[in-house]
Design a protein around this nucleic acid. Structure first.
Lengths: 164, 164
DNA sequence: TTCAATTATTTTGATAATCAAAAAGGTTTC
DNA sequence: GAAACCTTTTTGATTATCAAAATAATTGAA
């Protein structure tokens, strides 16, 4: 790796680890002591734009629907989420934030908003524009890479690491 | 959130989720079928610059030493890591990559290197410069935020989310 | 119209990651 | 030499995750 790549890489790696921790600690600090970071991200993925199917939410979170079922079970029990089967197609299950869920959503959005504000505050107008442009490229880059790897893996039985 | 902050935020959130998946899928694709992404990150944190104490590695990964013990147990069993107590201070435990561990380390570094190269290839000189600048800022921002939250949490009993 | 194929979700069984607190092993200092 | 301290492992518990099997509902074709 070249020097610049190395630098960029180590910032990526450390920032990556750090962001989870920051969110976790902010959670412990705040009003949201009742839920885990992952549950909050599930709430974030359900969002406030009306009911979503389980599959839609799972796709957004990049987890299997089975995994989602488990965290939605808990969120329903804790009163953050409603779940129902619509009459017109009773195969699907819709999820929807309760008022309590919406409050949590908004708090987390505020936290993200503050993060973004702090980042942008460091930059002048030109730099800001450039950053938006760059982040979009990086976002698209990873999305495409993910999709192409997904394609390659299709049909393959994915071997899970196991103890001997 | 303002429109720009919102955009930036959604790119961040999605890129964040996506990077884990990309690494996971690249792992399933590659030679490293024997280990999980987390184990690979443990290998990454141990590194090739000679033996490290458990505490050092745990601090780098931002996990407790207890958590690290568990994944190091597995990595030792699988032959990626050596563990020993030095004669001069038998309280500490040193960990060190085996040849097999170093190979895994190098493969993962190559993967990261390629990712960074691909990202930088998308950008012109100006963008590249700004990205490096911004990532450093972002990195420092989260590090400081993390440290200050850590400070605030000190002494507090952290409540773990529990079912009613 | 019924039943086979398809679609969407949940359940099951298993593993991995994580933490706090307690226990264990070792060193330092008074 | 014993109390205080440091470092790691163990313990007990929860959460997150997946693939595969089971369940539930719809669609479409004979």
């Amino acid at each position: 790796m070249l020097k610049q790549e190395k630098k960029l890489n180590s910032w990526f790696v450390d920032t990556f680890n750090r962001i989870s921790k920051v969110e976790q600690r902010a959670l412990n600090e705040g009003i949201l002591e009742e839920i885990s970071l992952n549950e909050l991200h599930t709430i974030e993925a359900i969002g406030i734009d009306g009911p979503q199917t389980m599959s839609e939410v799972a796709a957004r979170l990049l987890v299997t629907v089975g995994t989602l079922t488990i965290s939605v079970n808990r969120l329903v029990k804790k009163g953050f989420v409603w779940r129902y089967r619509p009459e017109d197609d009773r195969r699907v299950v819709m999820v929807l934030l309760t008022e309590k869920g919406k409050d949590a959503y908004k708090l987390h959005q505020d936290f993200h908003g503050k993060m973004m504000k702090s980042i942008l505050a460091e930059l002048d107008k030109n730099e800001e524009k450039l950053l938006l442009h760059t982040m979009e490229k990086i976002h698209d880059f990873f999305m495409e890479l993910d999709l192409s790897l997904q394609e390659q893996n299709k049909g393959k039985t994915i071997k899970v690491a196991k103890d001997k």
